[in-house]
Design a protein around this nucleic acid. Structure first.
Lengths: 224, 224
DNA sequence: AACAAAAGTTAGATTAACCTAACATTTATT
DNA sequence: AATAAATGTTAGGTTAATCTAACTTTTGTT
């Protein structure tokens, strides 16, 4: 559970990668090649690292088999994600970075080592529950409460929902969102669904109605 | 002037160490052993690093001779110091870290690479000119303007001054300051100097008068 | 079931940052 | 000026993280 030696940035990054690859629908493990892809390294490098992480009891791993995080490995990964997301909130809310630029800087900040820093930062930010992309922020003890999120396309006609995130986080999409003045927390009412092409008529704020494509609505995450 | 490859954390730390060792009264250079001392390494490690930094034109260095920063080496060092001090202000002013704990965390934060981050942070903090220890914050273009600072002991009777920093930054001293409720910006009026032992009677805020020793007053930096 | 393709590992090198032990140079002192 | 002390460098080794090339195991397909 506790790990004596602090982990290197590199080790933290591998654990984070393994976490995100493992926590997908219906898979609790991942593979050497997938990790290599995600971390921009080559498979042999990953093999070495997996042996090392297994020695430290952070992953369960046997040659030629798929990898899984142990309980402590998962805790480390979640703490890194917690730090990443809190820094993203800071960059977005306080420093006014745009959505599409917070990630890169947070990638660096997430490795700063100081419990006190993170708890003070969290307090300073007002104990946020979601990052600027709508992803939930794990609590200090590693709990991750995920509100039920659906895509905007699946909201019923006449229903009201709140934007909590996006599925696509590429720049063009994020920029379009900004143009439409849609962000985290935006309240949206679904006026009408056009059967022909799945496009939606929605209204926001002062009743201004706009039309958005199905492709767009598939990439906006909301809670009802 | 421009350096193509970004420098490693380690290289930045050596440059910072060389800078602080070089910028002391009457010396514009430093030595292998001093650097080893400052960076907690051994002299051979420093020798290697100096050769490397010399190749990158960040220091002027010849075997067995003393080292000096080049113009671009100095610029790099100053930018690191700028980042360090801005982060210290953030930690102290926004996250309410105590004086004595900001340094350690800032040592890590100072290496985060992002021009935009630093300029936004600076703006967010209100373009501070000094860090929580009173040291001046270099401007984005590397200028360091040092307001005239004198020790509290040298303030004339009846004169008013403002605390801008400390000479001693060990914990016991900083804690004593906190106890007296003296910090950066505190307005102090010097009431009386006792000739016998050099101790001072000062008043702050609502006229509460206290007495402090010469030793104490020698370590408080102020501007009049 | 055979075998090719895909996935994964081992072997052997490389680079950065460090070390100790041994050697070289500079400096300070008699 | 000779020599001891201090300072600095070289040589050779270590560890972490990476790579390519060659090999092995697993998987998927005819």
């Amino acid at each position: 559970m506790a790990y004596l030696q602090p982990l290197s940035f590199t080790e933290e990054n591998y654990l984070k990668a393994i976490y995100s690859l493992s926590e997908r629908a219906e898979s609790f493990d991942t593979s050497t090649n997938e990790i290599a892809l995600k971390t921009n390294t080559k498979p042999p490098t990953v093999s070495d690292m997996l042996r090392k992480l297994a020695d430290k009891k952070l992953v369960t791993y046997e040659k030629y088999k798929r990898v899984q995080l142990t309980k402590s490995g998962r805790q480390v990964a979640i703490q890194v994600i917690r730090k990443h997301r809190l820094w993203e909130v800071f960059l977005h809310d306080k420093l006014e970075f745009t959505w599409d630029k917070v990630h890169e800087v947070a990638e660096q900040l997430e490795h700063i080592r100081s419990e006190e820093l993170i708890s003070r930062l969290e307090k300073f930010l007002g104990y946020p529950t979601n990052d600027p992309h709508g992803d939930p922020i794990p609590s200090a003890n590693g709990e991750l409460t995920q509100a039920k999120r659906i895509i905007l396309s699946d909201v019923g006609e006449g229903k009201v929902c709140y934007v909590v995130g996006v599925k696509d986080s590429t720049s063009p999409f994020l920029q379009y969102l900004q143009q439409l003045n849609i962000g985290i927390g935006t309240k949206i009412k679904l006026i009408e669904r056009i059967a022909y092409d799945g496009s939606l008529t929605i209204s926001m704020r002062k009743g201004q109605q706009i039309s958005v494509s199905k492709k767009f609505a598939d990439n906006v995450l909301v809670t009802v």
